[in-house]
Amino acid sequence: MMRMSKIVRTCADLMYPFVVIFGWYVIMHGHLTPGGGFQGGAVVATGAALVIVAYSYQEITSMLKKAVLMVQESTGLLLFIGAGLGGMVLGFPFFFNWLANSGSLFGMSVPYGPNPGELNTAGFLPLMNIAVGIEVWGGLTLVILYLLSGLEKGEA
């Protein structure tokens, strides 16, 4: 039952929403700015690691359930494959970008050359970024939790 002092715990509580929001910003703007699903998911998992460092293992396992994280990781991978399979329903090949330049969701087209950027572009790439972000978030948090659960009693 080892936990950090009240100052560290309060700072972790304060910083956690900002870290998560920044991670989701990196995920959502993956097709416009540097970043993407893997990087943003790693940032969000860093927020979870911050909370894990500040609290003890017993408190962490009541906040972050391993089963929920496992479901989250599987959901991310299934969403990723589903976004690739979505085009096959409409008659396109597997992994064809069936939303790009279509005019619907994320369907605005972009001319060649530098431009300020528009969020509603890029076809199914934002969907894939979100899927991979969910997967990496769950996966890395799960790895940290399992490595923490491998410690002896009294060390965590």
């Binding site: 416009l32 993407g36 972009v110 001319p111 572009t121 890029a122 076809g123 790439l125």
Partner: peptide
Amino acid sequence: QEQIATNN
């Protein structure tokens, strides 16, 4: 940019 409509 023209095929995938992505800046990145």
